[in-house]
Structures are given as C-alpha cells and as structure tokens.
Amino acid sequence: MSGGSVELHRHASGQDMAKEWARTMGVEFPRHVARQDLRDALTRVPGAPELEAGDQGGFLEYRTAASGVSVIVVDDEEEERGRHAGHGDVWSVSLWASSVPAR
C-alpha cells in the first residue's frame, strides 16, 4: 500500500458512520472538523511540519512532503456546514508513501 485517506466529510452526513468508525477503529472524530481546529492541534505537537497551501478548485490542499500528509479543506464560501462539510472544514486527510527504494 502506498497511501490512504480518511474522508472526514462523510461523517457530516450523520452520526452513524462516525459511531461505527469509533467502534471498529477505536478513533473518534467529530461530525465536522474545522481547519483552524486542526491547525491549533498541530501547534501543540513538537516538531510538526508547516503545511504548504495550494488551490484545488473549490478546495485548498495543505500538504508537506516531509511527513507525506495532505489535508483537503473546503474553500467555497457558499458551502454551509450541515449535512455536508462547509467552508473551512476538513474534507479529508491523506497519507502517502515517500519514494523510498525497495529493499
């Protein structure tokens, strides 16, 4: 496997999926995750890399090659938080493998 993604936006449509995820994976996520809340949490992690922003057409992608992390955030001001992720909410968090030679 070279990567994976947690599509947090799917939790906004209802608590059932979030509850199932918490039960099976042992990890709880709120229904909505604001980019600012994630950013604030990262400032408390020693050595956390700075995420660089890029435009993804209606979304912003914050990523860092150093850790192989990509965070997609809704960037459409007309999108309201509700049964869907709204403006400024995290859409997904992805991890990808760096290009490390096979052993």
Rank of each mutant, 00 (worst) to 15 (best):
M25L: 11
V74A: 06
G82V: 09
Q36F: 00
G26E: 12
E50D: 05
H11F: 15
F59N: 13
S98F: 01
L51D: 02
F59D: 14
D75V: 05
Q15P: 12
S70F: 04
V45Q: 06
H87A: 08
S94A: 15
F29Q: 05
V45L: 07
R10V: 01
Y62I: 02
A65Q: 09
E78H: 08
A18I: 07
E61N: 14
P46T: 01
S13P: 00
L38A: 06
G14R: 08
R23H: 14
A41V: 00
L8H: 11
V33Q: 07
E28L: 05
Q15L: 13
P101Q: 12
G68R: 02
S98E: 10
R39T: 03
L60V: 13
R81P: 00
R83I: 03
M1V: 13
R103W: 06
V69W: 04
L42G: 00
P46E: 06
G4E: 02
D16V: 09
L51N: 03
D89Q: 04
V45T: 03
V33P: 02
S13V: 04
W91T: 06
A53K: 13
D76A: 06
P30E: 08
V74D: 10
Q36S: 08
H87S: 07
G58H: 09
R23Q: 14
D37L: 00
S98A: 13
E80R: 10
E77M: 08
L42F: 04
E52I: 08
E79F: 00
H11I: 10
G57S: 14
K19W: 02
H32L: 04
L38Q: 05
P49K: 05
R10C: 04
D16Q: 11
I72Q: 04
S94H: 09
M25V: 12
W96N: 06
V45P: 01
S92K: 05
Q56D: 15
G4I: 01
E80A: 11
V73N: 03
H32M: 02
P101A: 15
D40M: 03
G14W: 09
Q56H: 15
R83A: 10
E52G: 01
G47F: 08
V33F: 04
G14D: 09
S94W: 06
P30W: 02
V90W: 01
R44V: 03
D75G: 07
V27Y: 12
V90K: 00
R103K: 11
T24F: 14
Y62H: 12
W96C: 02
Q36Y: 00
E80V: 08
V33K: 03
S70I: 12
G26Q: 10
T24H: 13
W96V: 05
S94C: 06
W91G: 01
V6P: 07
E20Q: 14
A41H: 00
F29K: 02
S92V: 02
D55M: 07
L95C: 04
P49N: 06
L38S: 05
F29V: 03
A22D: 14
A41M: 00
E61T: 13
R23E: 15
Q36N: 01
A53Y: 01
H32Q: 03
E28Q: 12
V93H: 05
H11D: 07
